[in-house]
């Protein structure tokens, strides 16, 4: 582990009883959903993690508890280190407090997660879908959402696919 990261991981352990793991020099810290806003505030204010590089989620379907990990990738420009904070969330009605008041960029990124994974961010200022049309059902990046693969047109299914294309000329 990077020497600069050791005190950070220690603080997280003491304050938020956060577990951590390491892979190829990257440190992942696990925090409970209730404490994520406090943890991010501590990291930003005390350890100068000014930049929320990425905010995304991973779906471990069919595992249900936890089904999702919400991933916060933080970068410190001053110390040139990165740390990843992960929040495990259960499968049925996943909820995490919003981080939009700590990092403004979380606003759009959380809307994306709401759209793509159906993870609700409590207290979010603008909870609308961002990428998909509003009338879409389901959340595309969940593993139980089908890819939506369509078959190529061959002789045996020529007419079936032609029916879907009402505007083909000639």
């Amino acid at each position: 582990m990077d020497k600069k990261l050791e005190p950070i991981v220690k603080t997280m352990q003491e304050k938020f009883s956060a577990a951590h793991e390491e892979f190829r020099g990257e440190v992942h810290v696990f925090v409970n959903p209730e404490q994520i806003v406090d943890a991010l505030t501590v990291l930003r204010d005390e350890y100068k993690f000014e930049l929320l590089s990425a905010l995304t989620a991973v779906d471990y379907y069919p595992q249900t508890s936890p089904r999702f990990h919400v991933v916060y990738q933080l970068t410190s420009l001053a110390n040139n280190v990165s740390v990843q904070v992960r929040v495990p969330v259960d499968g049925d009605s996943p909820k995490v407090p919003t981080a939009a008041r700590v990092y403004a960029t979380a606003n759009w990124r959380e809307r994306e997660l709401l759209d793509m994974f159906g993870i609700e961010f409590e207290g979010h200022p603008d909870p609308r879908r961002i990428l998909m049309p509003e009338e879409t059902e389901g959340h595309p990046l969940r593993k139980d959402f089908p890819l939506g693969y369509e078959e190529p047109q061959f002789t045996f299914n020529f007419e079936e696919i032609d029916l879907r294309k009402p505007y083909v000329k000639e």
């Binding site: 590089s53 990425a54 991973v58 970068t75 960029t105």
Partner: peptide, 25 residues
């Protein structure tokens, strides 16, 4: 910063690919 979050599950396909795209932010 164009970042890629890549997560494997032991198989030949990734379980999660996230592209952290700069234009979004």
């Amino acid at each position: 910063e164009l970042g890629v979050l890549l997560e494997g599950d032991g198989g030949p396909k990734p379980v999660r690919v996230h592209m952290r795209t700069p234009s979004f932010d």
